[in-house]
């Protein structure tokens, strides 16, 4: 029993080192809804990240090759990114190696109506929901 406890303590002691590169990235909101009247979402994205280890980190998105922002010797950060959105895209974090994505979050754009008018026809059922 004592051996098992000692082994468990050893494993837990090792975990922080193994998770040194672990990155938590959250983005809100994650869904943008468009239709023919509103083909573009004017969104303000709150991006929050946290790492287990201090270091050099950069936030990227699909809109530019250059990072949105970089942090030096930080283990957490946040920013607000205002932009017009038409298509699904991603935010991701990198460390010193810009090619290695530590965490990635996708923002989905959902087009709710269709150019095909038949998809909007009513079939006279009260339970006919959009």
């Amino acid at each position: 029993m004592m051996r098992l406890l000692a082994l468990s303590l050893l494993v837990f002691a090792v975990v922080p080192t193994a998770q040194a590169d672990d990155m938590m990235l959250s983005v809100k909101p994650l869904l943008c809804i468009t239709d023919s009247r509103n083909p573009v979402c004017e969104m303000s994205f709150l991006v929050v990240w946290e790492s287990d280890e201090r270091g050099y980190y950069c936030l990227f998105n699909d809109y530019a090759e250059a990072p949105v922002r970089c942090w030096n010797e930080e283990r957490q950060g946040q920013l607000t990114d205002d932009r017009s959105v038409r298509e699904s895209f991603s935010f991701w974090m990198t460390g010193t190696d810009a090619a290695n994505r530590l965490a990635e979050v996708s923002v989905e754009v959902l087009r709710m109506d269709s150019d095909d008018r038949r998809r909007k026809r009513r079939t006279r059922h009260v339970w006919d929901i959009n």
């Binding site: 869904l31 809804i33 989905e108 959902l110 709710m112 009260v126 339970w127 006919d128 929901i129 959009n130």
Partner: peptide
């Protein structure tokens, strides 16, 4: 009809 999109696939709907 009132609908509220929870995510890409799920929605809450009320129709009368």
């Amino acid at each position: 009809m009132v609908g509220y999109q929870l995510d890409k696939r799920w929605a809450v709907s009320l129709v009368t």
